[in-house]
Design a protein around this nucleic acid. Structure first.
Lengths: 251, 251
DNA sequence: GCCTGTCTGATTGTCATACAGTCGGGCAAG
DNA sequence: CTTGCCCGACTGTATGACAATCAGACAGGC
């Protein structure tokens, strides 16, 4: 895992209209830091770093090839995101959720995603509703054809993306992203989920999509709440059983 | 503003049962970093650093007396909290909210605080309900006696604290704290609020307290939503008028 | 054999310094 | 007045260093 300093001639864009140009020009500027942040975040969420594992600065330096300064700043950001916990004199440790904490997070998600659904119904354009249906159909296909957990997660992400965009509240998007990231710390190696949570989820989401197409905000919110609630049940159940804080891809 | 490195011979305790003892022993260790973080956060929220103001590392170093390493790590944390925005090649700038962003934040607060009220009704002990009433009475007194904005804010904080504790969801607490911090970036120097938002707020909160005492979760949630909604209206209105992103202590 | 005091290595917390890259603004030339 | 160059101010990143702390090994005493 080596990060070439300024390897990719990409640019994180400074702002506004220039952004699009910047990428064409090949201006970089994507601070090394943000690249490292992405790499580590990804590593945590994909469980290459297991929950509870210590993240030793020296090792991260060796892995990434960047300096300690950079690593430390990244660790602060990860800590603020809730993916890592910093123990004084001990350093960073990948967060591992207790069932109680998981429950709390799901509780918040339920509320916010209910709102998300409601807002989507209220604000989304017809095109966005169509996009939602399309994303759902896609997900449905992936689940039916049993293309594997990763594919399912990717399809779900797309669907979520549609919802978040359609709801038009970037603060909500940011908040939910963070919650999702933290919750997904549950989904560990033991990808042996419950019976077949995926197909159940599809059923729940179908309700959502139909409510949205009917432009019924309340039904949509209810469907979403039900969905998250079910996911929470499955997820937390899995955590409780599988010993520590490892769970499944309940959602 | 000088932070004595390890000024207080305190140490942040390692864990568990020792913690309580540690404080007696006077062991600290509160990493310098966290002290600086608090100082800067406070400085931002109290508008000693105005929204939009650049936070130049060198100056922060001079102000606090800590090294650049520490300052930079703190800035990353503040950025993750949403109090500061980092512009590539330009550094940290105190966030200044646009009316739209403010609206988005209030929207989320509305949802989450409605839930907070509901949860409080469902989970709080009788003692906590009494504490809520007490906090409210206190606030009421402060507002009536016109003891000033600071006193009002402090009284509100107490009331919130009771709610958050009673609701028993620490993730919710963390999320809301962050939202509150960001929203309060609106409340700038121009403390000339609307007509008399404070007393209106008291009225709204009375509804809340009464609903709670009646153990009516739905009413409590509604009251809270109404309260936040009103605060949002006042706050955002103030922002729009007072030019940039300065507003009032609407709430 | 079990408990306790001590030593040591591994790591973090913090600091000082250095240097390239970038941005903004001033200054000079056309 | 516009264009282009130069400089100073900062950030982004790297490096080396040192004190403090913690965990575990180790040895000595009861």
């Amino acid at each position: 895992m080596t990060i070439m300093p300024y390897a990719k001639p990409v640019s994180e864009a400074s702002s506004g209209q220039v952004a699009s140009l910047a990428s064409q020009i090949g201006r970089v500027a994507a601070p090394l830091r943000s690249q490292v942040l992405e790499v580590l975040r990804e590593a945590i969420l994909s469980f290459r770093f297991a929950p509870g594992q210590r993240l030793i600065e020296r090792e991260l330096i060796d892995m990434t090839g960047v300096s300690r300064t950079t690593i430390r700043e990244v660790l602060r950001e990860l800590a603020a995101e809730g993916l890592v916990k910093t123990i004084p004199q001990k350093g960073a440790v990948v967060v591992s959720l207790t069932p109680e904490e998981a429950e709390e997070l799901y509780e918040i998600r339920e509320v916010l995603e209910g709102h998300l659904a409601k807002r989507f119904v209220e604000r989304a354009t017809d095109a966005q509703v169509v996009a939602l249906r399309r994303a759902f159909t896609q997900l449905e296909g992936v689940v039916e054809r049993q293309e594997g957990t990763v594919a399912v997660l990717r399809a779900k992400d797309v669907l979520y993306e549609v919802l978040l965009t359609g709801a038009g509240n970037s603060a909500l998007r940011a908040t939910l992203s963070q919650l999702h990231a933290r919750v997904s710390l549950l989904r560990a190696s033991s990808l042996a989920s419950g019976p077949d949570r995926p197909s159940e989820a599809v059923g729940e989401l179908r309700e959502l999509v139909e409510a949205v197409e009917a432009r019924d905000a309340r039904d949509a919110a209810d469907a979403m709440v039900a969905h998250v609630g079910a996911a929470a049940g499955a997820g937390i159940e899995a955590v409780r059983s599988s010993g520590h804080a490892l769970a499944t891809a309940a959602n």
